[in-house]
Design a protein around this nucleic acid. Structure first.
Length: 688
DNA sequence: ATACATACC
DNA sequence: GACTGGTATGTAT
């Protein structure tokens, strides 16, 4: 599915009331579930085509139904127009196929649910309750987190440049709209809508092109202001940011809501952009709150446990960032429509939706989430890719040309990002809109167009073979498993901007050998030659020459490095947990048996089962590393929260432990005291 | 590890 | 007639 638990958001938004404090009805007009209720009827097992049509309509309506500006728009009429516009197209057929797949999954979910309910669910129930309790004990209500979102940002910037756009329905984008003015939204026009559909809804709709330089410039102006409120704020795209105003409010003796009013006024007056803001104790809650009084408004979710729980209770799960149309549908099928519905189903969540999604849902139910705001350090990018849509394309030559162009574009992006990749992914969208991907790993990180092309061509050939007459409307390439490019020959030490053409660059990617087989035989190492001529001696990232015999070592070194990094990451995770930053990382289940295999006959690591160099010393080293890694994993698994061991040492055999938490929430209310110490601040917040 | 699907801006 | 692009991530296999 998608990110959900990850590190990011999760929360909800919209209506609802909080007993203890204010939030009553919001301006967002619509009722909690009313605004994006599942069109599909609840629990009936796949009821013929009416239901499927409804599900399809739901899909076609697009992802932005939750967005503001749709109040008072006749959704029935809009749906009809969209349906009419789409019917019979390939796009429509593809959507219908996806909708059918969803219907199947939903039916399966319901079957599985019925089966589960006849079983003994005590273990799952206990696990869920333990997880909830550990989350609860990590709740931190002490921060003032603000989410800012510029209203129709691209459109607003466009209107600043061209005042004749003010007050009229217009949209930014090409064949698909990026965003549109609020006047346009009154017609049912939305972002992500194809332009031709938008025109049917609003014939006078004016279209303007995107202008990224302007957006970037304006975003810069705004950020300069935000910085004075929180120097450590976190941009989230061009038009959104998270701030932690705890210090600002304290230092200036000002309330959160006054501070945010002031900030919004300042941005409006200095930049001409209106902003909507959400104020809450966590990032996901702030994001939800920000959608309440949009546009040009703000909303605060009070930072008491009661207010948060009450707010979440009536909230449509769809309002939670990370729950999209599909998961909403699946949840609906098991009786979960608002966040309060999550609790009674808690024992079923893991078996029905998997571990991550289950944790995510429980976290959302409690209204718990990230409280630490920090700009991304730029090193966290995980992939770089490029793709393009074009008129249907077929034929070996045309496809290769397109592939080469794409590889060239990707090289540019890789250069820009300063990274190389160890995996290349080819993506293709057939003329039918079906999407296919193929990927391969490489031993040596790549980034040049030639390497990328050579690696991706066999994937394309594979597709051509699988699908005779391959006809596509999109082709994309992406590199993952990124490695920092550091200093390399092209950015050489002497500043001579010489960009060696790939021919003279070291490239293991000349033949089939580049492709990392699933299980590379260790002997293969010295088998192939770097074909670098004298003038093109192989060079590694640091500018050192690589001798052919060293290739395997380089790859092995890379692997060791990564393993070490994983170790590091795991240790950090422990620390984080210790910080109680985000209880969502606590284990829900301590299952997973990891008894090392006894069988070491080949050169495969008995722990991770990955092939290892045919070198006893190296193998032993690897096994040690693997064991310690496994140990850390176990510790991470078995220490729900602030009990991280002060120090990790000598690898020991993995030992299994069971979460110790026993505290359980009572009917979504308070929980019994945990036997863990908590900081006073948190304790106070929690029991306030 | 690979493929596919979902999600968000 | 016409339905994006970039990145992340969850799940199944």
């Amino acid at each position: 599915m998608d990110r959900r638990l990850s590190d990011d958001e999760n929360g909800a938004r919209d209506v609802s009331q909080s007993p203890t404090t204010e939030p009553k009805q919001d301006i967002d007009t619509v009722k909690p579930e009313a605004d994006e209720g599942i069109v599909t009827g609840p629990a009936v097992p796949a009821q013929a085509s009416t239901e499927q049509l409804n599900a399809l309509t739901h899909r076609l309506l697009g992802p932005s139904l939750t967005k503001s500006g749709q109040e008072g728009v006749s959704q029935d009429n809009v749906s009809q127009v969209i349906l009419d516009a789409s019917k019979g197209s390939k796009f429509y057929e593809r959507e219908a196929a996806l909708a059918a797949g969803l219907a199947t999954r939903v039916a399966a979910l319901q079957t599985r649910k019925a089966k589960l309910e006849a079983q003994d669910l005590r273990v799952h129930l206990r696990n869920a309750d333990a997880f909830l309790a550990s989350l609860e004990s990590s709740r931190d209500l002490s921060r003032i987190i603000v989410h800012l979102d510029c209203d129709a940002f691209y459109a607003a910037v466009a209107a600043l440049k061209d005042p004749t756009l003010k007050g009229i329905p217009f949209a930014v984008g090409g064949s698909v709209l990026s965003t549109c003015s609020y006047e346009a939204r009154k017609f049912g026009v939305r972002s992500a809508m194809p332009a031709f559909v938008a025109r049917k809804l609003c014939p006078e709709l004016k279209l303007v092109d995107q202008d990224f330089p302007s957006y970037i410039a304006k975003a810069g102006e705004i950020r300069a202001i935000l910085q004075t409120y929180d120097p450590n704020f976190q941009p989230a795209g061009l038009d959104e940011s998270y701030l932690d105003l705890t210090a600002y409010c304290q230092d200036n003796d000002i309330s959160a809501s006054d501070a945010v009013s002031k900030l919004r006024t300042e941005v409006r007056e200095k930049c001409g952009i209106t902003i909507s803001a959400g104020i809450a104790a966590t990032a996901p809650l702030a994001k939800i709150a920000g959608n309440v009084n949009k546009p040009d408004g703000q909303f605060e979710i009070p930072s008491t446990r009661e207010a948060v729980m009450a707010y979440m209770a009536d909230l449509s799960v769809r309002k939670v960032a990370g729950i999209g149309r599909v998961l909403q549908c699946e949840l609906d099928a098991v009786g979960i429509r608002v966040c309060a519905d999550i609790y009674p189903q808690r024992a079923l969540l893991v078996p029905l939706f998997g571990d991550k999604t289950a944790k995510f849902l429980l976290t959302s139910y409690l209204g718990i989430g990230r409280t630490r705001i920090a700009p991304s350090d730029g090193r966290d990018r995980k992939s770089v890719g490029t793709e393009g849509t074009f008129a249907d394309l077929a034929g070996a030559q045309a496809l290769r040309t397109k592939l080469r162009q794409t590889a060239e574009a990707l090289e540019e992006d890789m250069k820009q990002a300063g990274v190389k990749g160890r995996t290349v992914v080819l993506k293709v969208k057939l003329h039918t809109f079906e999407v296919l991907t193929r990927q391969v790993g490489t031993h040596i990180p790549v980034w040049t167009k030639d390497d990328i092309y050579r690696i991706s061509l066999p994937m394309l050939e594979r597709l051509e073979k699988e699908i005779p007459g391959l006809k596509i409307r999109l082709l994309g390439l992406r590199c993952t498993h990124l490695v920092e490019a550091k200093l390399s020959v092209d950015k050489n030490f002497f500043g001579a901007a010489k960009a060696p053409n790939t021919e003279e660059r070291f490239c293991v990617c000349q033949d089939d050998q580049i492709l990392a087989p699933a299980v590379p035989p260790p002997e293969r190492a010295s088998a192939h030659r770097a074909e670098g001529s004298r003038s093109g001696v192989p060079v590694d990232e640091d500018g050192w020459e690589i001798w052919p015999e060293a290739e395997f070592e380089a790859a092995a070194e890379q692997e060791r490095k990564e393993e070490f990094e994983e170790l590091l990451k795991l240790s950090q995770e422990l620390e984080e947990r210790h910080d109680q930053d985000n209880g969502a990382k606590a284990p829900l289940e301590s299952s997973r048996s990891t008894s090392p295999a006894d069988d070491v006959e080949s050169w495969a690591c008995p722990i991770c089962n990955r092939p290892q160099p045919a070198d006893e010393r190296a193998l032993n080293e690897h096994i040690d590393l693997c064991l310690s890694r496994e140990t850390i994993r176990e510790v991470v698994r078995s220490v729900p929260e602030n009990k991280a061991p002060a120090k990790l040492e000598k690898p020991t055999l993995p030992s299994k432990q069971v979460p110790r938490k026993r505290a359980r929430p009572r009917g979504g209310g308070s929980i019994s005291k945990s036997n863990h110490e908590q900081s006073n601040a948190k304790r106070r917040a929690f029991f306030s």
